[in-house]
Simulated scan of single mutants.
Amino acid sequence: MSTPLPTLLVVAAALIDADGRVLIAQRPEGKQMAGLWEFPGGKVEPGERPEAALIRELREELGVETKEACLAPFVFASHAYESFHLLMPLYLCRRWEGAVTRHEHAALAWVRPNRMSDYPMPPADAPLVAYLRDLL
C-alpha cells in the first residue's frame, strides 16, 4: 500500500469583469510550475476559514478588497500531485474594490472562458475552465 499524500487546502477566485472575462495570473519564475496560468488565490493557513484566506490572498496578490458576501462557491478541484493532494475550491467574484494590480505574478490576463485553453494551466486548474465556459 502506498503512503498517503498530505492534503493541501488552497482557495482560488475567478474574478469576472463586466464583460464576462475572467482574470488569470501567470506563476512567476522560481515557483513550482512557473510560467503556467492559474486562478489567483493561495493556501489556507491553519485555523483560517477558506473565505478569509481568499480575501487575504486577493489583497496580497492583486491589491483588491472584497467581502465574503461577494464570494460565491462554484466548483472545486481535487488533484493528486506527486508529493501532495490538492483540494481547491473555486469561488466566483464579480465585486471588488481597487484596481487589479500584479503584486506576485509574472503577468495578468483578462480572458474570455472560451479562450482560456490558449493559456497553459496547472493540472488542477485546467479542468475548471469547462465549468466557467458553461456558466459564462
Rank of each mutant, 00 (worst) to 15 (best):
A13S: 13
A13C: 13
A13K: 12
A13E: 08
A13D: 14
A14D: 06
A14F: 07
L15R: 09
L15H: 10
I16Y: 05
D17P: 01
D17A: 07
D17K: 10
A18H: 11
A18W: 00
A18C: 01
D19T: 07
D19E: 09
G20Y: 08
G20W: 08
G20N: 02
G20D: 08
R21S: 03
R21C: 08
R21K: 10
R21P: 04
R21T: 13
R21W: 08
R21Y: 09
R21I: 05
V22A: 11
V22S: 04
V22G: 06
V22E: 11
L23S: 14
L23A: 11
L23R: 13
L23V: 11
L23G: 12
I24D: 08
I24H: 05
A25I: 02
A25W: 02
A25Q: 05
A25C: 09
Q26N: 03
Q26P: 01
Q26D: 00
R27P: 08
R27I: 12
R27K: 04
R27A: 09
P28W: 03
P28D: 08
P28H: 02
P28L: 03
P28T: 13
P28S: 04
E29Y: 04
E29W: 07
E29N: 03
E29D: 09
E29C: 00
G30L: 01
G30M: 06
K31Q: 07
K31D: 07
K31G: 02
K31V: 02
Q32D: 08
Q32L: 09
M33L: 13
M33F: 11
M33Q: 07
M33K: 12
A34C: 02
G35Q: 00
G35A: 08
G35T: 09
L36V: 00
L36K: 15
L36N: 08
L36D: 03
L36M: 02
W37F: 00
W37I: 04
W37R: 12
W37H: 05
W37C: 02
W37V: 00
E38W: 01
F39L: 06
F39Q: 04
F39I: 13
F39S: 10
F39V: 14
P40A: 03
P40D: 04
P40E: 03
G41I: 07
G41Y: 11
G42R: 13
G42S: 10
G42C: 00
G42E: 14
K43A: 15
K43T: 12
K43G: 13
V44P: 06
V44D: 11
V44R: 07
E45S: 04
E45W: 09
E45F: 03
E45N: 06
P46D: 12
P46G: 03
P46Q: 07
G47K: 11
G47M: 13
G47T: 14
G47C: 12
G47V: 11
E48M: 04
E48F: 05
E48T: 13
E48A: 03
E48I: 10
E48C: 05
E48S: 02
R49T: 15
R49A: 15
R49D: 15
R49L: 15
R49Y: 10
P50R: 11
P50C: 06
P50S: 14
P50G: 13
P50E: 14
P50N: 14
E51Q: 15
E51D: 15
E51R: 14
A52D: 15
A52C: 07
A52T: 15
A52E: 15
